[in-house]
Simulated assay, not measured.
Amino acid sequence: MAKRDYSNTGVNTRLAHIGNDPHDFHGFVNPPVVHASTVLFPNAETALGRVVKAKYVYGTHGTPTTEALGNAIDALEGSAGTILVPSGLAAVTVPLLGFLSAGDHILIVDSVYGPTRRFADTMLTRLGIEVQYYDPLVGGGIAKLMKPNTKVVFTESPGSVTFEIQDIPAIVEAAHAGGAIVMMDNTWATPLYFKALDHGVDVTIHAATKYPGGHSDVLLGTVSANAACWERLHQAYLTLGVCAGPEQVYQVLRGLRTMGVRLERHQKSALDIARWLEKQPGVARVLHPGLESHPGHAIFKRDFSGSSGIFSIVLAGGGQTQANAFLNALEIFGIGYSWGGFESLAVPVVLTDRTVAKGPYEGAVIRLQIGLEDVEDLKADISRGLAAARG
């Protein structure tokens, strides 16, 4: 039976069918969960790879399970290849280690995910790499920050917890002119709402723990690269041996099948609540790029095809005491440091480690993950929190 090409179908059709062909495994819809370390070769020549190169050589190099998810991600990203690693943070650290050497300079957006900053400020600096943070709104002006030894520009849009929108095409143009590659943490939008490689990004990173997994029960990261960067990324992956387990890979592949319809729900609910919050007493600002009031909305509309379910609010005055009162009054929202799952979450935002993107903000900043619950119930819960913060 000829294999179907789903490249010209709708996104939910693609998500339902990409990655593996059921007829490769006796018609079973889902691929097998292959638990593997050792792979046996038919002869010594194949083992040495001198006559026939074996498709699979060892568990860390890939299995039919990892191949299925990798193929699916490549189909979404338009990438030359994808590696699967044990967490979203590993998806950040592996490419950075693969593309940077002692004496290199890296530019990192100041609104980056906190653990990425910690890795840069500790591991990268210890390895002799010069780390510099830049304003998320710099756009093409990043050309002025480039140095002869700048090898990587690391982006994240929207920015973590404060949701600044970066002008990715302008940054890409300046970075490439200066001889650097561009990496992007694209977890917020997923490749459904922002195809990073189509905008010139070289390496795109996702915490598949979030929307691809979708059920708050799995840790996984994916890193995809264009043709120019794929071989170096792949070699770093093989050298470091940071590979994902088969059960986690399978769970993310399963979650991927429903990611489109879940994201539609996350997007609709989050925008509804964000617009409602703009009118609520006790809220100074809503930091959601999908809102017309957001400073980066024009770039967002130009580059993104949708928004996900996470954004922040700024309370109208107060500090940690008011933030704590808001959070402690919530009954449906959990207090937890993740997102992308079915449940709504809220966490306080701390910006003390930033050097550029510090605000100012009118009051405490709180990040909200809007889950799959009924919107009216979530609004009632947020109202409880706002009343407690005002009190």
Rank of each mutant, 00 (worst) to 15 (best):
G179S: 09
A208N: 06
G334A: 12
A270L: 03
K301F: 07
V138I: 15
A270G: 02
I313Y: 03
V29Q: 10
G309P: 02
V52P: 04
C229V: 05
L378R: 05
Q248F: 04
I299D: 05
T122S: 15
H17Y: 14
Q369I: 01
Y58S: 09
V283Y: 01
R262D: 10
R302D: 13
F300S: 01
G27Y: 04
V94Y: 00
A72D: 07
V261C: 11
N186H: 05
V94D: 00
A196F: 05
A2I: 12
S101G: 05
A244I: 00
R262P: 05
I335T: 13
K210P: 00
P360N: 09
E247Y: 09
P348T: 08
A102Y: 08
A36V: 12
E231D: 13
V138E: 09
Y211M: 12
P281L: 08
P212K: 05
E231N: 12
S160M: 07
R275V: 05
L291G: 03
L240Q: 14
V261T: 15
G59L: 02
M183F: 11
A44E: 15
Q320D: 13
I18E: 06
A44P: 04
G159E: 02
I165L: 10
D110C: 09
T9A: 10
A228W: 07
L287C: 05
Q166V: 06
I73V: 15
L368Y: 01
Q132T: 15
G385R: 02
P64T: 12
E164R: 11
E362W: 01
T258R: 13
D24N: 11
T122Q: 10
R14H: 08
A120M: 11
L97C: 11
S157G: 04
H199E: 10
E373M: 05
A387I: 10
P64D: 10
D381L: 03
S111P: 08
I332Y: 03
R390A: 14
A284K: 07
G290E: 02
W276S: 01
A102C: 07
V350A: 12
A316K: 14
H234G: 04
T187D: 04
P148K: 08
F99Y: 15
T38V: 10
P148R: 06
I73G: 00
K147E: 11
D5Y: 14
R384G: 04
G78Y: 03
P191S: 07
S344C: 05
G140C: 09
G178P: 02
V375P: 03
Q251W: 08
S305D: 11
Q322G: 04
A380F: 01
R126E: 13
Q132I: 04
I273T: 01
F300E: 03
E292S: 14
Q320E: 14
L240R: 10
S269D: 07
H35P: 00
P42K: 09
G309D: 02
S224H: 03
M1E: 14
T65W: 02
D121Y: 07
Y56G: 03
K144I: 01
T162E: 08
L76R: 01
V201A: 08
H206Y: 14
D104K: 06
G27C: 06
T321V: 14
